[in-house]
Amino acid sequence: MSTDIQKGAHVSVAELTRRRADGLEQSDGQRDAAQQALIDVCLSVAHRDNAADGCPTAAPASDMARGSADREACRAYSEGVGDFADWLATEDQDGMARLRTMVGALVLARATREFLISEEILTAAREALTATDWRERQEFSPRGHGAGGRGRVRLRAGPRG
C-alpha cells in the first residue's frame, strides 16, 4: 500500500472538515447557507475545470475502490465521507443522497467537459440539491425529464467551442 494513498485519505478527511468549518464561518454559522455555498462551488464550471485543486471526496475514491489503500486509510476516508454526508443533510433531503449527487455530477461533468452536456449535468445537480421538496426536484431537469425520468440524452453536435 502506498503511503501516498494513506496520506491522501487523511488529507481528504482534513480538507472536508476544513471546508465545512470555513463555510460555517463565512456564513455566520448558518448551516443552510454554508451548504448552499459549498454546493455552488463544488458544482461550478470553475471547480469542474480545476481538477488539480480537486474534490476531497471524489479524488481519492478511485484509489479506495481499486483496493490501493490499506484498511486504516479506507476507514478514515469512509468515516470522513459519512461525517460529510451527515453535515449535508437537511430537513428535506438525505445527506448521503446529496453527497452522491454532488460527487457523481462532478465526476460526470469532468468526464464530459468538452461537451455541453457537462454544464447541463452541473446545473441539474445544483437545482436538484436546492429544491425544497420532491415535486420541485421532479421539475428541475434541463431536458424536461425530471429526476429519474426517461429521456434519451443526446450530445450536442461536437465539442464545446
Rank of each mutant, 00 (worst) to 15 (best):
Q36F: 07
L16F: 05
L88E: 03
A85P: 04
A52H: 07
A65R: 05
E91V: 10
D92E: 15
G158I: 08
R20W: 11
S62Y: 09
T123V: 10
V81P: 04
A33I: 08
R20Y: 01
T130R: 11
A85M: 04
A131K: 00
E127N: 14
A97D: 14
E15G: 02
E136P: 01
P142Y: 01
A109L: 06
E79Y: 08
S27T: 01
A21E: 15
L99W: 05
R156I: 08
A131D: 00
L108Y: 04
R113D: 03
I121F: 07
G54V: 02
S78F: 08
L99P: 09
S12K: 04
Q30Y: 05
V45G: 01
D40M: 14
Q93C: 10
G104P: 05
A61S: 14
R75V: 08
R152Y: 14
R154A: 14
C74K: 07
G149E: 00
Q30V: 14
M102F: 02
A124F: 09
E25M: 12
A46H: 12
C42H: 12
P60G: 07
G158V: 07
A65K: 08
S12I: 01
A52V: 09
L16N: 03
D22S: 07
S118G: 02
E139T: 13
G23T: 00
E114A: 14
L155C: 03
Q30R: 12
R31M: 11
R135E: 12
R98F: 06
S62R: 10
H145P: 06
A73R: 02
R66N: 13
L108I: 09
E72C: 05
N50L: 08
D86Q: 13
G104A: 03
M64F: 10
V81N: 02
E119A: 10
D94Y: 06
T101K: 03
T132R: 15
C42L: 15
T101C: 11
R154Q: 13
V45T: 06
A105F: 05
N50V: 03
M64R: 01
L106F: 07
T90A: 05
A51I: 10
A157D: 13
L16E: 02
C42N: 11
A37I: 03
G23F: 02
D49F: 02
F115L: 05
Y77N: 03
S141H: 06
L24K: 00
A59S: 10
M96T: 14
A128E: 07
R31N: 12
C55S: 08
S141L: 01
A59P: 02
D53Q: 15
A34N: 00
L24D: 00
A46R: 15
E119I: 04
A147L: 15
R154N: 13
H145C: 14
G158D: 09
D63P: 00
A147W: 15
S141P: 04
C74S: 11
W87M: 06
Y77T: 00
G80H: 01
R19M: 14
R71C: 06
G148D: 11
R150W: 08
R152L: 15
T130D: 05
Q138Y: 05
R98I: 09
R31W: 09
S44H: 05
